[in-house]
Design a binder for these strands. Structure first.
Lengths: 337, 337
DNA sequence: CTGAAAGCGCTTACAG
DNA sequence: CTGAAAGCGCTTACAG
């Protein structure tokens, strides 16, 4: 079942069949009809590879995230899918499971696929070697006209970016918590090798500093970027001795684990300790207590990055869209005991 | 940057360059080295479309789900990604936003893409016309060697399938709730046009029936398959007058909304009313109270369907893997007040 | 083992 | 408007 078969069935040339189906050039109405009918009758399905090869252009975009099962990435992916659907683009998905090597091999695969644009979603790794390889891969990709946009990473990769204001958001959150009366804080941080974590911690810290408050190093616990990571980090924090009235988890997902750990330890939130997260993934408003957080418009992030990557712009000029986070005070934070 | 360039740089023929890079046939070691080196130096990236065209085989699989932002699908997608990664397959993702037409256009697009296998994830629609179109699309796809597997749909589509035991799971859940002492029930159902909903409702109902208990029609409320759908359905149920000691929401996502609605209405769960869901999406164990549910191994579902689609089997023989749901009693259910 | 050549299924100048 | 032909970048019998 090829275009050739359709052309033969319609009694026209290959070229005419192609034109009739794609409607680029004018084709006599009756011929177009015949071709269309033949294609329909034969259930013709154009070979996307042949077409991509002949046009040397592609209707695909690539999206690489760390874990499509995580509500943060799932929310962003939802926005990406919406934008892609609007532009009739197919989406090739990569989920790295937080393995830097896998990220690079996805990028390379997508380059081979000649996707029109590539989206990297999520924090990068603070890893010199990885940064080198990725940059090289992306440069090669762009050298042949590929477009790259990133969400939430800036180190190491020079590309169009949608950047949540991690620093600013965390600082704003800190100020809100200070306003509630808190003066001693602890932080459940994700892996410090992730730029997002570093930024959020820095923002939080600097806002405290301007009030003359410093984070004790024992009150910063590093954990995996998962619910269980938050749970375990909290247990470790309690083991070290909690010396804070308020705990900031660098993502909501971790905060969920923290909430469980506090509950198990018999600590009430917010009566005994206040708890805040970051991202505003959908479910946290249904927790008990609902979680204070810095809200990021996840779907928007995805849509905007996709649109940005698709919008041709004079190259060598990197565009950056900064996205403000919105502090949302919910019942998980209150005045210090 | 094509294979031709690499061949020239290495001083060999196109054919030899191809063989050296793909390692299918034997190539003299020194030639292979030269080709590899040249490819490396030139940062050669094989054109996936050209390759797919020449081999008329493809390293891609397609996955179509209803909403990648929903934790149920995100969980399954996670499993799919794991399996795909194991087989070095790229994944093309479709998210229908619950639009039947979009599902068909995705299927058609993936057929054009000549993907090796196609996964349809999630309940089908009870819609004659849609079923016709989809079946036609899939038949055409399979006629050319395409493989199809579905998760959780059986009506209308004849294909390899991983089927959660929706009926059995719901029935088992009902029996557990009966054992707790409940004798009056209400159901928050998703759209009755979804086979999953119909099956879960039927299973629940039949288990009750064998105890001589019948669901009042006023106590079955249909809502969207979302958190807000569950919230609104619950409000409607309360408006009609709750005449049950236990409420079954046909998915966890809906149950989350129900929990919020009950809380707002001043009803305590489970003291005033028990609540149970279905699926066991990750977050529900962290709700207050944690949600009773029928646990489905979401990631497994995805992995198994992918493996099944990849495993060539004598065609015309449809394979079905049934996956038992596990009733997990948590604190959202208790004895009737 | 190696190379020249045909072929995969389309698109698109180039003539007419 | 229509068609013959070249070309997109690979793979793979077929000879040597």
């Amino acid at each position: 079942m090829t275009l050739g078969d359709v052309a033969r069935a319609a009694g026209v040339s290959l070229a005419t069949a192609s034109r009739a189906l794609n409607g680029a050039t004018q084709v006599r109405a009756d011929l177009r009809q015949r071709v269309r009918a033949a294609a329909e009758r034969l259930a013709y399905s154009p070979n996307a590879h042949a077409r991509a090869l002949a046009k040397s252009s592609n209707a695909g975009v690539g999206v690489i995230c760390h874990d499509i099962g995580d509500p943060y990435f799932a929310g962003i992916a939802r926005g990406v899918m919406r934008a892609a659907s609007r532009h009739d683009l197919q989406v090739i998905l990569g989920s790295t499971f937080r393995d830097p090597l896998r990220e690079i091999s996805y990028a390379s695969m997508m380059r081979g696929q000649r996707v029109r644009a590539m989206l990297l979603v999520g924090s990068g790794f603070e890893n010199r070697e990885w940064q080198e390889s990725l940059r090289r891969e992306l440069d090669l990709y762009r050298a042949t006209g590929g477009r790259v946009a990133v969400i939430s990473r800036h180190r190491g990769v020079r590309a169009d970016a949608v950047l949540p204001e991690n620093r600013g958001g965390a600082a704003e959150l800190a100020r809100s918590l200070l306003a509630l009366g808190h003066r001693s804080f602890a932080v459940l941080s994700g892996p410090l090798s992730l730029t997002t974590v570093v930024d959020r911690l820095a923002g939080f810290r600097s806002a405290l500093a301007s009030w003359g408050i410093h984070l004790l190093s024992t009150q910063i616990v590093e954990g995996a970027f998962t619910r269980d990571g938050g749970y375990e980090a909290t247990q470790e924090l309690l083991r070290r001795g909690l010396r804070a009235t308020c705990v900031f988890a660098s993502t909501d997902v971790m905060a969920i684990g923290a909430l469980a750990a506090f509950r198990e330890a018999g600590l009430r939130v917010p009566d005994d300790v206040s708890l805040a997260g970051f991202d505003d993934i959908p479910m946290i408003r249904d927790l008990t207590p609902p979680l204070t957080t810095v809200a990021l418009p996840l779907e928007d992030l995805g849509e905007r990055a996709m649109e940005m990557a698709l919008l041709p712009e004079r190259p060598a000029r990197v565009r950056v869209e900064r996205v403000q986070g919105q502090v949302v005070l919910r019942a998980s934070t209150g005045p210090p005991p």
